[in-house]
Amino acid sequence: MRVLLIDGEPDRAAAVKAGLEAAGFTVVATAPEAVDLTRLVRDSAADIIVCDLDDPGRDALESMRALNRDEPRPVVVFAERGDPAQIEAAIEAGVAAYVVEGLAPARVRPVLEVAIRRFRAHQALRAQLEQAQATLAERTIIERAKGMLMQRRRLSEEEAYRLLRRWAMDRSRRLVDVAHDFLHEI
């Protein structure tokens, strides 16, 4: 796994880098602060972001939110303090793991592995939600088209659906596309 390390203290960053590499990770880049993470991830092609921060600020959290939106990657924050509101803000920004009381070398690998699994599970749920929303939108279009056919041609629901299906088969198009075109023609 390719790691982007965020740490504002050079000596600590060197120690964390050594710990990550000892745990089997490759540190591809180091940055002093968590700003413009999307660019840093694109430039470094990092698979995971490890932030060793004393106190993640609003700018860092906003950068994590932008990263989660534009280039989703697992983000792990090791922080010295664990204010509940700050942890909640980090989770909302897309942080996969927020570990309080800093980075201990023995915990690095298990924490990163859990964060990666949690991130993947979240991404899968996100994809399922997007698919369900798309399916619902398609069904809504088909239902509207059926309703218009029923009203304008005095058809039953089944007859309207069969007519839409026939139009779709005749044109070798998806049912939702034919329904969409029909709604825009009226």
Rank of each mutant, 00 (worst) to 15 (best):
M1D: 13
M1T: 11
M1V: 08
R2H: 15
R2E: 14
R2Q: 15
L5D: 07
I6D: 04
G8N: 07
G8E: 07
P10S: 10
D11W: 05
A13G: 10
A13T: 02
A13E: 06
A14I: 04
K17S: 13
A18S: 12
A18C: 00
A18T: 08
G19K: 01
E21R: 06
A22Y: 00
F25K: 13
T26Q: 15
T26R: 15
V27D: 07
A29R: 03
P32G: 12
E33T: 09
D36R: 10
T38R: 03
L40P: 10
S44R: 01
A45N: 10
A45I: 02
D47L: 07
D47V: 04
I49E: 06
V50I: 04
L53F: 03
D54F: 11
G57H: 11
R58F: 15
A60T: 03
E62F: 12
M64Q: 05
A66L: 14
A66K: 11
N68F: 02
D70T: 07
E71H: 02
E71I: 00
P72W: 10
R73E: 10
R73C: 10
R73S: 08
F78N: 02
F78S: 02
F78I: 04
E80D: 14
D83S: 12
P84S: 04
A85N: 14
I87D: 03
E88D: 13
E88G: 09
E92I: 01
E92F: 03
E92D: 14
V95E: 01
A97L: 08
Y98K: 04
V100H: 00
E101K: 14
E101V: 05
G102Q: 08
G102A: 00
L103V: 01
A104I: 09
P105V: 06
V108D: 01
R109T: 09
R109A: 13
P110N: 01
E113T: 02
R118G: 12
F119P: 06
F119A: 04
F119E: 02
F119S: 01
R120G: 08
A124Q: 14
L125K: 12
A127L: 15
Q128Y: 11
Q131G: 11
E138R: 08
R139T: 09
T140S: 13
K146I: 12
M148I: 13
L149C: 06
R152F: 14
L155W: 14
L155A: 01
E158A: 14
E159P: 10
L163V: 07
L163W: 13
R165Y: 10
R165H: 13
R166D: 12
A168E: 07
M169H: 13
D170M: 06
R171M: 09
S172R: 15
S172E: 15
R173F: 02
R174D: 14
L175V: 07
V176R: 07
D177T: 00
V178R: 03
D181N: 08
L183K: 03
L183W: 14
E185P: 11
E185N: 14
